[in-house]
Structure formats: structure tokens, C-alpha cells
Simulated scan of single mutants.
Amino acid sequence: MPGSDFTLAADPDGDAEDAFSLLADETRLAIVRALAASPREPLSFSELRDRVGVADSGRFNYHLGKLTGRFVKKSEEGYEIRLAGWAVVGAILAGAYTRGDDIGAIPVDHRCSTCDGRVEATYVDERVTVRCTDCDRTFLDAGIPPGVLEGYDDADLPEVADRYVGSLLAQARRGFCMSCQGRMEPHLSVGADDPRTDDVFEEPQAVYGCARCREKIVTGIGMAYLDHPAVVSFYYDHGVDLSQPFLWGTAWHDKPTLSVVADDPLRAAIDFEVEDETLTLTIDEGLEVHGVERSPAP
């Protein structure tokens, strides 16, 4: 995505350390995975033990008891996996697929919107980058688990990366952390001289920070309004469907511009220009929209 940079920096507290310690055993992981493989109905103690393959009933009961409550639910019908257990299995599967080599460079069909140069995508050390080879403009820089790419050809990398990162950004815009599901708090950074934030960016950015962990999503300001109805309809009226992939080639051909119009409270205007029209959103420090105006481009 234009100007996007997705980073992950976990900061587990004591509760998280306790949770991970409960899973530091192959038998316990096998229990969680067995329950995930049978989500339609609870499993009895004996059924679950048979699927895990532990002959010693006492040993199995000990490990199952450690998981019950946090990762496993016990009822009269038997044992079921809890949402926390699903998260563990999902993380295992996301990292289970590994590549023996990196991917790149994969040509991207769309030309650079800044210089009309050639755009390429690479995947190195679990990170995808989409960049212009001529002016070095970066359209996408994001960490992607290897499991996301399982089943796809190398040539599919740009589209898969675009769809995956778009889903993470949509989740952040709706207020949920992609790592711990905590509350994401959005704010506007207006540039390197912004006194309101410790972040230092050369251009205005939308920043989503998790209130629970240290996860942070940083993206070009236009991407914060990718699903705003005024923005969606504005581009659709000009023949651009924002739900389609490869936004670096179809939308933001001329990057949205931002200008600060008031300081206390902070108000900024974002201008989206297509052909002979301008859409202006007036926003605050928390990225909330306070005004919408469409007018002929100057």
C-alpha cells in the first residue's frame, strides 16, 4: 500500500509469559491441535487421549488440566477448544510453511505513479517490499508470515501481499490489533516537526498503535480513508474501484495531500484529486472526519 509500513514488536507481560509456559510441552500443543481438528462437537476424555496418542491416562490428565480454562473448555459434553486455543493453532499454521529461498524480483504490472518507472516486488526474510526501481519510491513494506503464501506461485506475490496487508489495515481502522486483538488507537502525524508525537516521518502519516502491545501500523494518510463512503464513491465516479487489488497502480496516482488548517484543536484537510475534481476531508488528530466537500480541481 502507498507509504505503508507494518511492524511488529511484542512486549508480553506476566500473563502472556504464563500463557506461553502452559504451551511449552509437545503433549499440550498436541491436545490443542487435536481439538482444533474436531471443532464440530466436544471430545470425551478418552477420545481426545486416543487422538493425541498418550497411553498414560494420569500423565494425559495432568497436561489437559493445565490447559483447561485458558485454552480448553470443559463441559458435560466433553472438551472443546477456546478462542485462545484457536489463536495458538492459527499462529502455528501461519509459521509452519517455510520457504527455502526468497522471492524476487517479481515485476508489477502497474507503473510507478511518481515517475512512471518499473515497479518490482520482493519477499526477503519474511518481509515483502514493493518498490519503484527507478525513483526508489516504496509502495509497500510489510512483514508477512510465510503461511500466507502457501499454495501460491511466486508470480502471485504482489496481489497476495496487497490483499493480506489490506485486511490488516482494515482491522486496524476498525480498532483491533492484528497481533493481540487489543484496542488500536489512531492518530495523525503531520511530519518530522510534529510536536504531538514522538514519531518522526518525512510526510504526513496515519499511525495506529495498540494500547496493549507495542504493535504499530504506519501508512500513508490516504489509506486511512480507503473505506470511507465519500472516498469510495468519489473514486468510483471516476472509474476506480477501491475494492480491487494493486491500489498502488489504480488509486492515489497523485498522492492525497494534507495541510493543517487549525492547531487547537488540530484540524487538517486532505485533498484527493482525480481528473478535474477534488474531494476534501477535514479530519482531527484522531483521524475522525469532520467535514466532506467536493469541488472542481483548481
Rank of each mutant, 00 (worst) to 15 (best):
G3N: 08
S4Y: 00
S4P: 00
P12R: 13
E26K: 08
T27E: 03
L29A: 08
I31L: 10
V32Q: 07
A36G: 04
A37D: 14
R40E: 13
E41S: 13
P42G: 05
S44P: 02
S46W: 03
R49W: 02
D50W: 01
R51C: 02
V54S: 11
S57H: 13
H63E: 14
L64T: 10
L67I: 08
T68C: 12
E76K: 14
E80P: 00
R82P: 03
G85R: 04
G85T: 06
A96C: 06
Y97N: 03
A105D: 09
A105P: 15
V108M: 05
S113M: 04
D116L: 02
A121G: 10
Y123W: 13
V124S: 10
V130T: 12
C132L: 01
C132Q: 00
C132E: 00
C135Y: 04
L140M: 13
D141C: 04
G143C: 07
P145L: 11
P146R: 14
P146W: 10
V148Y: 04
E150N: 12
D154E: 15
D156I: 09
V160H: 07
A161G: 02
G166H: 09
G166T: 11
S167A: 15
S167E: 14
L169Y: 00
A170V: 07
A170G: 11
A172M: 02
A172W: 01
G175R: 14
G175T: 11
C177S: 04
S179K: 08
Q181S: 14
H187Y: 14
H187V: 03
L188A: 12
D193R: 13
R196Y: 08
D198N: 07
E202Y: 06
Y208R: 02
G209I: 07
R212Y: 05
R214V: 01
E215Y: 11
I217N: 00
I221K: 09
Y225M: 06
H228N: 11
H228A: 05
P229W: 10
A230E: 02
Y235G: 05
Y236E: 15
D237C: 07
G239E: 12
D241E: 13
D241A: 14
T250D: 09
W252F: 02
L258P: 03
L258T: 10
D263P: 02
P265M: 06
R267N: 07
A268I: 04
V274C: 13
L279P: 06
T282M: 09
V292F: 06
E293Y: 08
S295P: 00
P296E: 09
